[in-house]
């Protein structure tokens, strides 16, 4: 099993009057090469669960095991290394460095990888090609359209060849045409054997032939 989530709880502002239980006893399993859709309305806990799987945050209790490694309690250095090696995260708001160009954004995850800049640029070129954004390599991110920004974010997520691709509401800021292009890229990633988790409430995803599992979330629980 690629990912095993066991009894995960996440409480924000724990121990204060503003405490909020975002995830309640989540159990989940995702097999290697599987494409899973997490559906549910905004605030149902999808993004929180994704950030825990990507080690961007820590659960209040429970455990998450990815490829045999317990990532829910990793110290910063190991969590960062795990993200740098195994995770490709595509955010709803793209989260790109606006002052840099497409290529410069794409190379960012590899800067501390130990590769020299020539090799890194070769890897970035390959990744930009997969995401169909090579023609905009030297363009400033702030000058791109929403769809182009999304493809830049995809190239960045793929540059280090991660095994697990996590997408958080990837089509929320895209029109239908760009959403379909994104799905095409996702399909090619699936064909390359990547494990993919997509949190979305976009109905386009639910009927996709390569989706192996749709998990519905509501009020912090899987229903």
């Amino acid at each position: 099993m690629m990912i095993r989530v066991e009894g995960i709880n996440k409480i924000f502002n724990e121990g204060t009057p503003q405490a909020f239980e975002a995830l309640k006893s989540i159990d989940l399993e995702v097999a290697k090469g599987e494409t899973m859709i997490l559906s549910g309305v905004s605030g149902s806990g999808k993004s929180t669960l994704l950030s825990l799987i990507a080690a961007l945050d820590k659960p209040s209790s429970g455990k998450i095991v990815v490829e045999g490694e317990l990532i829910s309690k990793l110290p910063d250095l190991h969590a960062s290394a795990y993200r740098a090696k195994s995770i490709g995260f595509i955010f709803q708001h793209f989260n790109l460095l606006e002052s840099l160009s497409v290529e410069e954004n794409v190379i960012a995850p590899l800067i501390n990888s130990g590769f020299d800049i020539v090799s890194i640029k070769q890897m970035a070129a390959k990744s930009m090609q997969s995401a169909a954004i090579s023609h905009k390599a030297s363009q400033q991110v702030k000058e791109l359209s929403g769809g182009e920004k999304q493809r830049c974010a995809i190239a960045r997520a793929l540059v280090h060849e991660p095994e697990l691709i996590i997408c958080d509401e990837p089509t929320a800021n895209l029109d239908r045409e760009n959403s379909l292009k994104f799905i095409e890229i996702l399909q090619s990633l699936h064909q390359r054997g990547k494990t993919i988790i997509v949190a979305t409430h976009d109905p386009l995803f639910e009927t996709l032939p390569f989706v192996s599992k749709v998990v519905h979330m509501e009020d912090g629980s899987i229903v």
Binding site: L56, R83, F91, N112
Partner: peptide, 13 residues
């Protein structure tokens, strides 16, 4: 800083 951390940079980096 948040973006760089998310793409794998450690606090030390």
């Amino acid at each position: 800083i948040g973006i760089l951390r998310a793409v794998g940079w450690s606090i030390k980096d």
